[in-house]
Every structure is written in structure tokens, then in C-alpha cells.
Design a protein around this nucleic acid. Structure first.
Length: 943
RNA sequence: GCCAGAGUGGCGGAAUUGGCAGACGCGCUGGAUUCAAAAUCCAGUUGCCUUAACGGCAGUGAGGGUUCGAGUCCCUCCUCUGGUACCA
């Protein structure tokens, strides 16, 4: 075996690992456990993408590294195979979903094995396995059985829900209804996001800019009875517990933003008879702020109670229950028209037209509780019924949206906050410019002169004392719409009781845990039809209408969304074969939490928020031991296509500089001045050159071109296929290249030349150790059983130290650089100590396991190196005996002095001062200051 | 608009967190080897000025500041990427 041949080595070692179960994790860990998890893929029909191996290689390196350091490592892999994408693929290829899913899983499994990841494959699972989703259904039943105790701030069994006496008195039926109102899984008639193209409703999180996240199809609002999960009850804990985890700030920020906690106050404005104001105030002062507002007040939510004196109008959402009552006869027709228009608008329209504010006056007034002034009440769709109380006080002087609206409808603008310093202070005072920030109160009666912060605290206390308001917290997070009208998902383990006439009684019966799983029935036609009735409604009667204890039921025909299975798979990996529980408590306690979780940032809100929610419910109910599932999260950056140069040409073929290109309203690329449509053309690297900060055409340097890397996509034709890379360069080269490209978390452009570069490095490693001229696999004659020289030792120990540090901090690109330096050094050495070669093989093994196993064997070992001891270093040997210290004059480098590493401060200073090329810079000058940083530098400040 | 993150050679990227900017790789140039090529090995490679050799000046998106010393810290601005968008 003279030359490095990955095509031969790699399958051989993959077979070895599989036969010997090399990476099988123990049921319970030893002294130190490490649970490293990849976000499992959904097995698309396209097979693995080069983005997948990036994160998977990173976790694999960590696992292999830590195994060599003696840790018990759990590193599993599975497939997220239920849901829309899998079903869409099945429909497209006209295959039953289970069949096409299994085929895709097989492809993914083959590709993952081909890359040599050290997964414990005995734990493989798919969310579509009946034995798996049996427990997904079980957890759903747990959610159904749980209510959230806001006092204790935790989920509790529904049997422990206190039932008010008056409900108790009404009988069993009333109690049941009361309980249903508190369950974490509940049914609700609400306006939902309906996507007829996908034939299902979608969660808020799955709708982006009024279009479906998957497919980009239009989404409309439709009232439908749907299953919801009360994730909002956990909003504060989901937000606060972000403190407990080691995640990137940006992901935490995205979750925080999605949860959208805001603090402020609720305030009641009297809308009843103004003559009764005094009596109302008296009653309120005595009784305090009521939990639910009466019909005589309009309750608003504001984050700026300090601007109450500047409220010049109020707005209620078009869907607000008071619309009818507040509308005067004179305004009736315009209000009706406006509300109908608002209702007809889809979410997309509402945001699209968001630039121009619309609204209509009701004709009614409310009374401002702080000054008794009447305030006109408007209806406008910029106020959302689903947030806060669906009503606001508008303070145009200090809120940009209110300001816009007030300008449009010529409503007075009263400044009540003055900034400390502002260029347009006078304009702000006159209400001509909006100030959204904080400052000092003016025109606010007794509160004048207070800072915004003081004012907020004071007014909250005063309002509370008068029973007119109270502090309040609001979240943007909405309850999670959990049902889908599709076939390919987990059936709900819920039965609807039917009466003798076959009509639903409204009574829900959860399927007994011992009767789980509820499997999917066989359906001839499972395809969505664009109407809200689920396809499971066409299931055979034996499935659809079970009879239990003589009672007839109809099964729930909705299915769970794609996210259900991925909410708890990390727990099942710990105990994948258990048929008594979703996970054994002892094993759960031993392995959780996940120590390192790696995946794409596209799951920043959806998956990670949902999984954390389920985990907290399981935690509250005593089934898991940690409050958070994922202790550390790293998002790998996206791998982009190769850098492309794009030039623009007009219709007549003339080149146009990129500085003159813009996009018109329809998104077409047009000339900035003439508006003529332009075409982008791909230019080869040798057609362009760098000029200043940008690239220009070689044939005309005045024409600037675009240079950037794009997302890989089929339509762009820049997709890199991992199979091809493995064939051409080998799996180790692919792994190594993806780690060498740059920091794990950064987005990086692909470069074929770069793959060739790391392959070159592996060739050099091979030749450093193996005799490339021999027919058989024997050591390079330069490798000898000798002790390393002192210099060789220093190189070795420095490398061990640096690589170990880089592995600990996930700095894989620099770790590779260090090993390249090692190889560059030792290939120049005529004698290469075998021990040093062995140490390098161990260092490189986590990254390029196949070649290293082979080299390890050639170096005379008959066991896998997967559990060989990680190399250690001697700190003393990582320092050089002599060091070169830069010498500066006035901060500029003027010379270098070579001295002993442990030189004293004074000796270093003396050596620097006597340096020959320093003298001219010191001559005739006075040394004002001498800066000596031992081991680092000397700097003379002269005058 | 708002919130994150990032701007360093022809390219991907280093820089122990305030201490020699450009490690390592790609590409390019030259050389060795070869009948020739591939492969391999060696040397060079930020720009400008200058030298026989040395050396000097500038330089990390732009401008300002702090410091003996700034890619790194502070202020203002520009560009790009991702997220988000009437959430009161």
C-alpha cells in the first residue's frame, strides 16, 4: 500500500467499527459523562447536503477527543421523518409516505456512515417508528393532563386543579368544562393561519410575512376548532431560564424577542356616563382594580404610563368587543365599512399596507383617569386584538405609530416628555417631532420634572392606590397551534364521545396509556384536498369509530405537527428500547442534560422553543431532572457556494457598473437612472480584477462587478454533493476541509481548491510516516525508534498543547493549522522519532479517523485508537529556551533581541538598550519612559 | 425602522484578548527533479519608496479619541449578512 488511498482505507475501518461496536455507549455512564447531540435531520429526497457534515463533524471530533480523555460519551443519531416536508416529497414522488420516508432514511444512513461518524447506531430512531411515537402520544396525554399553577409557577396534574364551589355545584359536566379550560393541551375556536395550498393550518411560528414558512404559499385567517398548547403559561420561565444555558447571545436574543416580554401597566378609562365619574372613582378607590374590566371602562395596556397626560386619542382593534357599543349613530356606516375591510384583509395585506395608517372615529369619548379629560376613541387596524387588551391610549408625541396616525387624521399632539439635549428640542415641544425615548416630564400636573423612570414607578403606585390601574406584563408569544390537517403525522390519542344519534357530545376521552400507540390507518388517498377536513376523516370505520365499554367514539382526525417528534427525541436516545417508559429515570438522571447541542440557526425559535417547553412540562411533572434540556448550544454557520462574480449588462449588451444597479418595486434589477431592465451575467475569475475596494472588469476597469458567495440552491446550480467529494477526495478530506474553512459558527464560502489543499495535507501526513515507494505498508525509513531531539520535543509538546486547547474551545480551523506546522517541520527532519509520529496520529484522529486508524496500525498497534490515551504535554517543553523580543521606540518596531526565556527585567532592558539598530533611534534623545513587558516586548519613549 | 453579528493581502482565514499584523491553507512567481509532463521538494509572495546588502514609509471599512503602544477599547458614520417588523 504505497500511496494514501482513502477509497480503500475508509470502508475498511467503517466496517471494523461496526463489527466491533466500537462506539457503543454504555447504558449508564462511568465517572464522567458527555452527551453530545446533533440536530437530527429530516430525511429529504435530495440526500445529505454539505451543510450537514459540518455540524456532524464538529460533534464527532468532540466525542472522539473526549473518549480518548476517558469520558463516557453518548453520541446518537436519528431521523425527524414525520411532517410536511416528508409528506410533500412522498406526494411529489407518488409514493406512500412511509415507503418514501424509509427510502430516504436509508440514503441518509448510508451517507452518514460513509463519513465515519462515531454514532452509537444501536440507538438509532425515527420519529415515525411506532415504538417512538407511542411515547410522543403519551407525552401529549401528559400535556392534556396538566394545568399551570400560576401561584406555584409550575405544571400540575389536572386532578389537583382547585374547582370553585359554584362550579362544583353545577355538576360533573361543568367541572369537566372548567378543567378543559386549564389543560395545557386544549381545543379552541380561534382565527387560525390556514394555508389552502398546503391543506393545513400552521403555527404562528410557521408563518413568515403572511406566507407559509415551507413553500411560501399564501396564508389566510380562518376560524377553526383546533388543538392548542398553552405555551404562553411558560413564557416567563422560557425567558428567564435562558440565563441557565450556554447559548450564543444572538440565539438567546432571538428567543427573547420571540417571547417578547414587555412590562407596563393596565389602565382603565371610563366610557360610561361622565356624570358618574366621581362616584366611579370613589367606588374604585374603595374596591381596587378589578381582575376583569366592567362594561363601563375601556382597559388599555401601555409600557409608558408616564405619558398618560399626552394621550390625545385612543384606539381599539377592529375586532374589539366594544366596537358596536362605542359607535355612535352618525359613525355607524363608516365604522361598519372599516371593520369589514379589516376583516377581509389577510395578514399579508395588513402588513403590506402598513406604511399608510388607516382608521375611523367611533364618535365616543373616554375619560382620561389622570386629568378627567375626554379622549376620542378610534378604531384602527394597527392595534392588534391579540396583544395586550386590544386597546391602547395613543400618545402621538412619544410613539412613532401614534404620531403618524395623528398627523394623518389631524389629532392634537401634546408633548409631555422633554429630552435632556436634542437638536430639535423646540420642534418636540411644539409636537412637530416625535420623541420615543425618555426624558423629563412636562405638562403632566403634579408629576412635572420627574424623569421617565421615576414617573413610571410613581404613577403605577398612584393608579393602584386609586384602583384605576396596575402593573402588567405582556408577551408576544401566542399559544401553539398544534393540529394539522395532514396525514403524515402522529395521530392524537383522543376520542370524541358520540351520542346514540352519532353526534359528538363534546366529551373528550383520552386513549388509555396501555392502548397506545394509536397507529395511522391505511389510506388509499392521503393527499390534502385544500379543505380543512383532515384526510384521516376518510379512514376505515374500524379505525375511526372505536367502541369502548359499549360507548361509541370518533377518533380525533387531526395529526400533530412536524415539531412534536423533535420535542423530546434527545430523551429517547438515552433509553431507546424501553417499552415501559419513554425513558428510564435512572438513565435520564445519569445522562441529562445534553452537554453540547449543534445544529443550524434556522431552528433558533421553532424547535428550540417547543422542545424547551415540553421539557419544562416533563420537569414539572417529575419525569426529567433538569430544568433545561440543552446546556450548551452551538449553531454552525451556513456553507455557501463558491464565490461568484456577477456583471450587469443592458439590453443592448453594454456593460453596466454594479453601482448603477438597483431593484424596482417588483424586485427586478434595473438601471438606477434610466430604469431599464438589466441582466446579471456570471463572470469567470480571470475576467475580473481587484481595484480599490471592489472588483472591476478586466476589459473595462470603470465597470464594477458584484462579488459574493450565494446560498447553495438547485436553481443557482452551485450545490456541492458530499458523495462526490468523498469519491474524489475521501471522507477524511471532506471532514478536515469543512473544519479548516473557518470558525464553526461563521458562514463560509465553499472552495474546491481548498478541499484539494487539505487532501494534500493528508498525503503529506501519510508520506511522513509511510514508505510511499514500497509495495507493502511499511514505515518510512526516516521513522526510527529513537528519542526526539530537544527541538523535536519542543515542536511536539507545543503542538499537543495547542491542539488540545483548540479542541477544548471548538477552534478546529486553528488546530489543523498547528498540525500542518508539525508536519511541515517533521517532513524536513531526516530522522523522525516513532513516538512523535504516534502522538501526531492520535492528535489528528478525531478529525480524520480513517487515515489515523490505518497509520496507527502501520505504526504497530493492533487495537483501534478510539480509546487510546490522549497525548499529554510537559509545560516546560512548550516554552522555547530563548525567545526573540521586539524592541520598540515610540511604539514603532526598531529591532529584535534574542534572549533567554527566563531573563530578568533589568537584563532584558539592558540587552534591548545595547541593541545595535536601536542606537540611532535613541541618540541625542532623552528616554522618558521604559516599558518592559517580560517575555513580550520593550518600548522606549523618547523625547 | 429595530435587534444581533461581521468588515484584515488576489481568496478562505490567524493574531494567547491592549504588545512583532497577515499564522496555516489556496492561488500566483521562481528554482530543483524529469526527455517532457504530472506528482514531489525548495524559495518567494500586503502596498509603495529605496538599496549591492541594509532600510524606510504607509497599512486591518471611513473619520475622530484614549494609550508608551489599538485589528483589539470608546464615540460618530458607511457597507454587508442573519433575524424581526404596527406587540402600544
Amino acid at each position: 500500500m504505497p500511496r494514501y488511498n482513502p477509497a480503500q482505507i475508509e470502508p475498511k475501518w467503517q466496517a471494523y467499527w461496526e463489527e466491533n461496536q466500537t462506539f457503543r455507549a454504555p447504558d449508564l455512564p462511568g465517572d464522567e459523562k458527555l452527551y453530545v447531540l446533533d440536530m437530527f435531520p429530516y430525511p429529504s429526497g435530495d440526500g445529505l447536503h454539505v451543510g450537514h457534515p459540518e455540524g456532524y463533524t464538529a460533534t464527532d471530533i468532540v466525542c472522539r477527543f473526549e473518549r480518548m480523555r476517558g469520558k463516557s460519551v453518548l453520541h446518537p443519531m436519528g431521523f425527524d421523518a414525520f411532517g410536511l416536508p416528508a409528506e410533500e416529497h412522498a406526494i411529489k414522488t407518488n409514493t406512500p409516505p412511509r415507503e418514501s420516508t424509509e427510502r430516504n432514511v436509508a440514503t441518509f444512513r448510508r451517507q452518514l456512515k460513509m463519513l465515519g461518524f462515531s454514532y452509537d447506531w444501536s440507538r438509532e430512531l425515527s420519529t415515525t417508528d411506532v415504538d417512538y411515537f407511542r411515547w410522543t402520544q403519551w407525552i401529549f396525554l401528559l400535556l392534556f393532563d396538566t394545568w399551570y399553577d400560576t401561584q406555584q409557577r409550575r405544571g400540575r396534574p389536572i386532578s389537583e386543579l382547585p374547582i370553585p364551589a359554584e362550579v362544583q355545584d353545577e355538576g360533573e359536566e361543568a367541572v369537566r368544562h372548567y378543567q378543559n379550560d386549564f389543560r395545557l393541551a386544549f381545543q379552541s375556536d380561534a382565527l387560525v393561519n390556514w394555508c389552502s395550498k398546503l391543506g393545513t393550518v400552521l403555527a404562528n411560528e410557521e408563518v413568515i410575512d403572511g406566507k407559509s414558512e415551507r413553500g411560501g404559499y399564501p396564508v389566510t385567517r380562518l376560524p377553526l376548532r383546533q388543538w392548542m398548547l398553552r405555551i404562553t403559561e411558560y413564557a416567563d420561565r422560557l425567558e428567564q431560564d435562558l440565563e441557565l444555558v450556554n447559548w450564543s447571545d444572538s440565539i438567546k436574543a432571538m428567543q427573547r424577542e420571540w417571547i417578547g416580554r414587555s412590562t407596563g401597566a393596565e389602565v382603565d378609562f371610563l366610557i360610561g356616563d361622565p356624570a358618574g365619574e366621581a362616584a366611579w372613582r370613589e367606588a374604585r378607590a374603595a374596591a381596587g382594580f378589578p381582575r376583569k374590566p366592567g362594561d363601563d371602562v375601556l382597559r388599555i395596556y401601555t409600557t409608558r404610563p408616564d405619558t398618560l397626560y399626552g394621550a390625545t386619542y385612543m384606539v381599539i382593534a377592529p375586532e374589539h368587543p366594544f366596537v358596536e357599543r362605542l359607535t355612535t349613530a352618525a359613525q355607524q356606516s363608516s365604522v361598519t365599512e372599516y371593520c369589514q375591510q379589516a376583516a377581509a384583509k389577510s395578514d399579508l395585506d395588513r402588513t403590506d399596507l402598513g406604511k399608510e395608517k388607516t382608521g375611523v372615529f367611533t364618535g365616543s369619548f373616554a375619560i382620561n383617569p389622570v386629568n378627567g379629560q375626554p379622549v376620542p376613541i378610534w378604531i384602527a387596524d394597527y392595534v392588534l386584538i391579540s396583544y395586550g387588551t386590544g386597546a391602547i391610549m395613543a400618545v402621538p408625541a412619544h410613539d412613532t405609530r401614534d404620531f403618524e396616525f395623528a398627523q394623518q387624521f389631524e389629532i392634537p399632539i401634546i408633548c409631555v416628555v422633554e429630552p435632556a439635549e436634542h437638536e430639535q428640542l423646540d420642534a418636540i415641544r411644539r409636537g412637530e417631532v416625535c420623541l420615543a425615548g425618555s426624558g423629563t416630564a412636562v405638562n403632566s400636573g403634579q408629576y412635572d420634572g420627574m424623569t421617565t423612570g421615576e414617573f413610571k414607578t410613581r404613577i403605577a403606585a398612584d393608579l393602584r392606590a386609586q384602583g384605576l390601574g396596575q402593573e402588567a406584563v405582556n408577551y408576544k408569544l401566542r399559544d401553539w397551534l398544534f393540529s394539522r390537517q395532514r396525514f403524515w403525522g402522529e395521530p392524537f390519542p383522543i376520542l370524541h364521545e358520540l351520542d346514540d344519534a352519532g353526534q359528538p357530545t363534546g366529551h373528550l376521552k383520552p386513549v388509555d396509556a396501555c392502548d397506545l400507540p394509536v397507529d395511522l390507518p391505511y389510506l388509499e388517498d392521503y393527499k390534502p384536498h385544500g379543505r380543512p377536513e383532515p384526510p384521516l376523516g376518510k379512514a376505515p370505520d374500524e379505525w375511526l369509530y372505536p367502541v369502548i365499554d359499549g360507548k361509541k367514539y370518533r377518533r380525533e382526525t387531526n395529526t400533530m405537527p412536524q415539531w412534536a417528534g423533535s420535542c423530546w427525541y434527545y430523551l429517547r436516545f438515552i433509553d431507546p428500547k424501553n417499552d415501559q417508559a419513554f425513558v428510564d429515570p435512572e438513565k435520564e438522571k445519569a445522562w441529562m442534560p445534553v452537554d453540547l447541542y449543534v445544529g443550524g440557526a434556522e431552528h433558533a425559535v421553532l424547535h428550540l422553543l417547543y422542545a424547551r417547553f415540553w421539557h419544562k412540562v416533563l420537569f414539572d411533572r417529575g419525569y426529567v431532572s433538569t430544568p433545561e434540556p440543552f446546556a450548551r448550544l452551538i449553531n454552525q454557520g451556513m456553507i455557501l457556494g463558491e464565490i461568484e462574480f456577477t456583471g450587469f449588462v443592458a439590453e443592448d449588451g453594454s456593460a453596466v457598473s454594479v453601482t448603477n444597479v438597483t431593484r424596482d418595486a417588483e424586485g427586478r434589477q434595473v438601471h438606477k437612472k434610466t430604469g431599464a431592465e438589466l441582466t446579471g451575467i456570471k463572470l469567470a475569475a480571470d475576467q475580473v480584477e481587484k481595484k480599490g475596494d471592489s472588483f472591476v472588469r478586466k476589459d473595462d476597469a470603470s465597470i464594477r462587478v458584484n462579488s459574493r458567495a450565494h446560498k447553495m440552491s438547485k436553481s443557482r446550480g452551485n450545490v456541492v454533493n458530499p458523495d462526490q467529494i468523498v469519491t474524489d477526495y475521501g471522507a477524511d478530506s471532506l471532514r478536515l476541509y469543512e473544519m479548516f474553512m473557518g470558525p464553526l459558527e461563521a458562514p463560509k464560502p465553499w472552495s474546491m481548491a481548498g478541499v484539494n489543499g487539505v487532501r494534500n495535507f493528508l498525503d503529506r501526513v501519510w508520506r511522513m510516516i509511510v514508505d510511499a515507494n514500497s509495495e507493502t505498508a511499511i514505515l518510512n525509513p526516516a521513522v526510527k525508534d529513537v528519542d526526539p531531539t530537544e527541538e523535536q520535543s519542543r515542536v511536539l509538546h507545543k503542538t499537543i498543547k495547542a491542539v488540545t486547547h483548540d479542541f477544548e474551545t471548538i477552534g478546529f480551523n486553528t488546530a489543523i493549522s498547528r498540525m500542518m506546522e508539525f508536519v511541515n517541520y517533521f517532513t524536513r527532519e531526516a530522522t523522525r522519532p516513532r513516538s512523535a509520529m504516534e502522538q501526531l496520529v492520535l492528535l489528528l484522529a478525531p478529525m480524520a479517523p480513517h487515515i489515523c486508524e490505518e497509520l496507527w496500525k502501520i505504526l504497530g498497534h493492533d487495537q483501534t485508537l478510539a480509546y487510546a490515551a490522549w497525548p499529554t504535554f510537559d509545560e516546560a517543553l512548550t516554552q522555547d529556551a530563548t525567545i526573540e523580543v521586539p524592541v520598540q521606540v515610540l511604539g514603532k518596531l526598531r529591532g529584535k533581541v534574542t534572549v533567554a526565556a527566563d531573563i530578568s527585567r533589568d537584563d532584558l532592558l539592558a540587552a534591548a538598550k545595547s541593541l545595535e539598530n536601536i542606537q540611532p533611534w535613541l541618540d541625542g534623545k532623552q528616554i522618558v519612559k521604559e516599558i518592559v513587558v517580560p517575555g513580550r516586548l520593550v518600548n522606549f519613549v523618547v523625547r
